[in-house]
Nucleic acid binder design. Structure first.
Length: 113
DNA sequence: GCCGTGACGACGG
DNA sequence: TCCGTCGCCACGG
């Protein structure tokens, strides 16, 4: 039994295209939960093991990875991103280059799904 | 109900 | 750019 908000958040994270990243706040907004970036972070820790959700494409609004530099988790996330050709330098990603900018179509599609 | 705790964010120095 | 501060909100003790 999981909070309904978590499902909305997971769905939204799944909409981030491969090779792009989005911020916690951005996901919260798109999920219809403005101002609840921290809830997004929480929910990513509760992703069911049998469900694929590209959690590693979610980073801070500053471009920094959420995990501290050098930690196992940060290294894992870095590896996953680099497999998608997202450049991670000094534990951060250049948002100018890799941040997902949803088109109107993508946002409307989410409403239907 | 109060309080501390987060995979956060905006802002100012 | 790198910090500290404050606001934020869901949870658990």
């Amino acid at each position: 039994m999981v909070n309904q908000h978590y499902n909305q958040i997971w769905q939204t994270v799944c909409a981030i295209p491969k090779g792009k990243v989005a911020s916690y706040g951005q996901i919260a907004d798109l999920a219809g939960l403005p101002g609840r970036a921290r809830l997004v972070g929480k929910s990513l820790g509760y992703i069911p093991k049998d469900m694929f959700v590209p959690w590693y494409r979610v980073i801070r609004s500053s471009g920094q990875l959420a995990f501290s530099a050098g930690s196992d988790q940060a290294l894992h996330q870095t590896g996953m991103l680099q497999e998608e050709n997202v450049v991670v330098f000094r534990n951060r990603v250049k948002l100018r280059v890799f941040q997902w900018q949803p088109t109107l179509d993508e946002m409307l599609w989410k409403l239907n799904g």
